[in-house]
Design a protein around this nucleic acid. Sequence first.
DNA 1: ACAATAGGTGTACGGCGTACACCTGGTCAA
DNA 2: TTGACCAGGTGTACGCCGTACACCTATTGT
Lengths: 230, 230
Amino acid sequence: MAESTLRRAPLSRDRVLHAAVSLTDVIGIESLSMRKLAQDLGVVPMALYKHVANKDELVGGMVDVVVAEIDPPEHGTAWKPAVRQRVLSARRTMLRHPWVSRAIETRQAPTPAVLAYLDSVIGMFRAGGFSADLTHHVMHAMGSRVLGFTQELFTSPEPVDPAVHAAAARELAAAYPNVAEMALAAAHEDASIVGSGCDDQFEFEFALELLLDGFERLHERRWTSAARAR
Amino acid sequence: MAESTLRRAPLSRDRVLHAAVSLTDVIGIESLSMRKLAQDLGVVPMALYKHVANKDELVGGMVDVVVAEIDPPEHGTAWKPAVRQRVLSARRTMLRHPWVSRAIETRQAPTPAVLAYLDSVIGMFRAGGFSADLTHHVMHAMGSRVLGFTQELFTSPEPVDPAVHAAAARELAAAYPNVAEMALAAAHEDASIVGSGCDDQFEFEFALELLLDGFERLHERRWTSAARAR
DNA sequence: ACAATAGGTGTACGGCGTACACCTGGTCAA
DNA sequence: TTGACCAGGTGTACGCCGTACACCTATTGT
């Protein structure tokens, strides 16, 4: 019957996209290849091209799948908690799929879902009474943070042998005393964080609140870019 | 004599690195390959491997070459103008070599020159009386802006036919009204900017000053992360 | 009953990073 | 002077990549 005819679920754009997201969650975006994805789906590589135009379009579709996971906006809240909630939800999504930030940055054009998300955040500021002008600059100031990520200037995924670590730290301290001091202060501050020595979530929220407070002050003062320097 | 013996200047790590930077300024980082670089230098691909360990190390060396172009710190200035000057100099450097920001983000470990630069900026905050604690969070808040760039969520390099543009704009406005309104406001605000409709330099400085002002306020209030939420 | 078509297959091409064996010309100790 | 050494450029080859193109096959609408 049905069982014998479909020895394997038929491909579809949706199945391809979701399989790609799951696979990339495991192997990382730089290791994703059409061949590996095809193998994962038990299919020959060229079969994928019946459902996505090419690899770039595949990645775009993957981004949209993930961005759609971001919680919808809350209605009836003031702009500040509304933006905060949305951005922190976006961040949670990005943490589930760490490759997405790089995928978004790499693509030259924003995908429809990203545009829709940005549109909704812009709408929050406008609904809060921000002028289109101020909203524009504010969105630029948020940068990628509006999507829940900051680019990490360095990522140290693998934990290292403590002895090696100590030696490296001593060397670092000699060459870069200010970096070392700061790292030490961060480590003291929160001994529970063993890895990079700092709490990424706290840093993200620190910057987010700093920006939101700054926006609030500008908005209260009816700031405008009309009298800009240059 | 000398002329006949050296029909071609001998390779060296430095020559390879500088040739790679120039070539990448032209063709872009995603088009850079060991083969093209070798051809550019009139040499066989494998010859490069006598001077750089592999492509990753090559890119690291290129980053360091560019980061070394950033102006040295000014001495005897207050922290705020000192940081501002340094960051804007970094930005000018990044604008000369637009591929560097992506190269820095892509690499997993910071290169020595980047670390040295960060060390010097950290030193500016410390010299300005910032606690190691506050300095740490402040550096995180700056993110990649400290290196003179913000990741562009979308880059539209090639100018398009006005008629096509108008049609696309109308379509955009229908689907994403808030994005469209903001874009329109930005365009009105500065008619001299024809391209993306906004002045990247202004946006960069807007966010930079917003952050620096925020840092100043926290510093004045002796802010500390000791009483943090979690 | 049959043509059309959607969707999976197989082969092949050009490009990539780079391992490995090789060669060549200059340097330096004996 | 000679011969070993070796820094540095060469040639070939391997396995990976994205994807063009021709092909086959099962379903479907007429």
